[in-house]
Amino acid sequence: MKQKKAASKAWPEKWHEINPGCMVFIPGNASTYHTGSWRAQRPEWDNKKCIKCGLCYIFCPEGCISEDAEGFFKANLDYCKGCGICAHECWPGAIKMFEEVE
């Protein structure tokens, strides 16, 4: 089925630039909105303590934790809101939260 294409701007500025019903014609464009800007605390991994269990990856409500080539984990700070669930769940204590400073 042919759909009408979105307005040229990815994010409408004025009220009349909004698509009817706020329809979004670019699937997955929520990724352009960096929710990481909400963060007050940042998780940091101590890979010496990490046992590569992947609990942080499973519990992250934002789905922003990924595994690297060596099997360790890290958060994508563009989307990490700093909720601290990963640090709370990490039973070997490999993840600590640090205050974000300007």
Partner: peptide, 30 residues
């Protein structure tokens, strides 16, 4: 105008932040 179809994914009923909600309300009223 547009419809939900797996061959051509779009989003309907999206979330609005404070910087777009008022514009959306004016569009609806108009």
């Amino acid at each position: 105008f547009a419809s939900l179809h797996p061959d051509n994914p779009i989003s309907m009923g999206c979330f609005n932040t404070p910087d777009i909600y008022a514009e959306t309300m004016k569009a609806k009223d108009t």
